[in-house]
Each structure stands twice: as C-alpha cells, then as structure tokens.
C-alpha cells in the first residue's frame, strides 16, 4: 500500500512531547457550535489554552457513537450553520495563524462520502487538516476512505476499543497512522468512565502491537482524570465535558454569552494543566 507524504505536524508534535517527556492534551470541539464565529474563536484560542492537538467535530445528523452532550452539540452546530465545506474554511483560517498544532477532523462517513472522497481529501489537505477519525469506518471498509486518505498523505486514526480482541487488533492497527485512539469504555461518549488500571492494561496491550502514540478518550471529564490518563498514555482526549461547557454558557435563546469563549478556554487550560502536571511512567 502506498502512503503519501503527510503534513508532518502530528509526527512533529508527538516528537516534541517525547522530548518534554509528557503526554498530549487533546480537546474536542464541534465545529460551528454554537455558531461559526464563536466556534472559530474557541478553535483559535485552544493552542494558547494548552491544546497540543485539536479534534474538530464534523456535525452529522445520526451520530450513533455519541452520547447526549455531543448529540446536543451537533444539533446546535446544525442550527449554527455547520457544513463540511465551512468546517474546512475554519481550518484554513486557523492555519493562517498556527501552522504547527495538528487538527484532526472527527465524525462520520456520510458527509465525506457525499462531499466526494477524492475532492474531500484534496480540499482537506489544502485547508491544513492533518488527520481523520471516522467513527463508522472499521478496517472492513478500508477501501472507502482509509486507503485513499493514506495515499493522499492524510493520517487515518483508528479507534481501538475494549471489544477489539487480540485477533482483531493487528487488522485495526495495520492501516492506522498518526496515532491510535483507544476508546476507554464499551459505550458512547460522555457516559461512564473507565478506571485507570483497566486503561493502563489496555494501553500496554496496544503498545505490544504498535509504536504509534496511543491517545485515550471517552469518559475523561476532569483535570484529575486527564492527569491519570496522561501518566499511562501518550494523549488524553476530552470531548463531552468541553461541549457541555459550551452548552452551559448559552443564553435563553441558545446564543453564545459573552463569557462563553473565555470559560471554554479556561476549562481547556485546567484540563491541560492536569495533563502537564504529571510526568509519564516509564514506557515499556
């Protein structure tokens, strides 16, 4: 399989973190939640608020792996003007001020399929997107987007889950690039949390199959939880807690209050401090 030359941002970022001997903090926000401009302000502010990589959610009407918080964020984003092309515009605008922080688009396949896979990969690369996480594309469907993405130099970051057994894991890892995203719970986003011992065992299992960095997400809500994960994995992803902060800073009409951006970035800062406050346990 041929892999195209990537943007290099994800590799460079994890190399830098390796030098600093710390894990990455990766916030998730939904593009256009609660509106395009506010969400761009959050995006733009995240690197200074401690984000090492950023997951930018692509709204989909039927997010079957997401819990109530991210479902609600999607509905707000829809009302706020979310469209895949506008999300790419947002990334393009972000890149005029930041050419280092990796951006990963996270969502579901249908909006990309309807946009057109080849056209999407071209436009996303040009906009400055570094990788994709597409929830409903398991290895069995690699010919759809994963292989064309890798050929186009777009990282395709796969989800591994508690149900991914040793028999499946090699296939799940095979065409993954950038990093591996370990879903810490069998469940949807923003519901239960796994305990640290389980996460540690799972990360160690993944490390036996890949040299790629391991990010852990689903169920991380507080700086302490993020810190605990940062001791055992290469990145901690927080999504539902952040979009909930957006929800908590809307006025009665669902519009952004003046404090919204500050409060979301403040949460990002405290989560990032949770991650940065710990040194990593020795790998291997």
């Amino acid at each position: 399989m041929s892999r195209g030359e990537t943007s290099g941002r994800i590799e460079a970022r994890f190399a830098k973190l390796e030098d600093e001997n710390r894990a990455a903090f990766v916030p998730f926000i939904m593009a256009a939640d609660p509106d395009l401009e506010t969400s761009f302000e959050i995006l733009q502010g995240l690197p200074a608020a401690g984000a090492d990589l950023i997951e930018l959610g692509v709204m989909y009407s039927d997010p079957m792996a997401d819990g109530p918080a991210i479902q609600a964020a999607g509905l707000r984003a829809k009302a706020g003007g979310a469209r895949l092309d506008r999300t790419l515009d947002m990334v393009r605008r972000f890149r005029t001020g930041d050419n280092e922080t990796p951006i990963i688009l996270m969502g579901y396949y249908n909006p990309i399929y309807i946009y057109g896979v080849d056209r999407f990969l071209t436009d996303a690369r040009a906009a400055g997107v570094d990788g994709l996480i597409v929830v409903d594309l398991p290895p069995e469907e690699d010919t759809e987007l994963c292989l064309p993405a890798l050929a186009a130099g777009m990282h395709f970051i796969r989800l591994a889950t508690p149900t991914t057994d040793d028999k499946r894991l090699p296939a799940v890892i095979a065409n993954t690039s950038g990093f591996v995203y370990y879903v810490a719970i069998a469940g949807i986003t923003g519901t239960k949390s796994a305990d640290a011992a389980d996460i540690q065992a799972s990360v160690e299992r993944l490390k036996r199959y890949t040299d790629l960095p391991i990010a852990v997400g689903f169920g991380i809500r507080t700086p302490d939880q993020a810190g605990a994960v940062a001791q055992i994995a290469d990145a901690a992803v927080v999504g539902s807690a952040i979009v909930q902060m957006v929800a908590d800073n809307l006025d009665a009409d669902g519009k952004a209050t003046p404090e919204l951006v500050t409060n979301v970035l403040g949460l990002s800062r405290s989560l990032a401090d949770g991650v940065r406050g710990v040194s990593r346990k020795a790998a291997e």
Binding site: M64, L137, P138, E141, R158, A160, T161, T163, T164, V183
Partner: peptide, 20 residues
C-alpha cells in the same frame, strides 16, 4: 462475503460493534 449487494450494504459501524 463483505455484505455487499453491488455497491450497497457493507458494515459501516463503530469498532466497538464490529466484533459483535
């Protein structure tokens, strides 16, 4: 064997569900 009827069908599910 992949569940395709022409271009239709398939298994577009989250990894958590795939083993099931």
């Amino acid at each position: 064997e992949h569940g395709h009827f022409g271009i239709f069908g398939g298994r577009f599910v989250a990894e958590t569900l795939m083993p099931l």
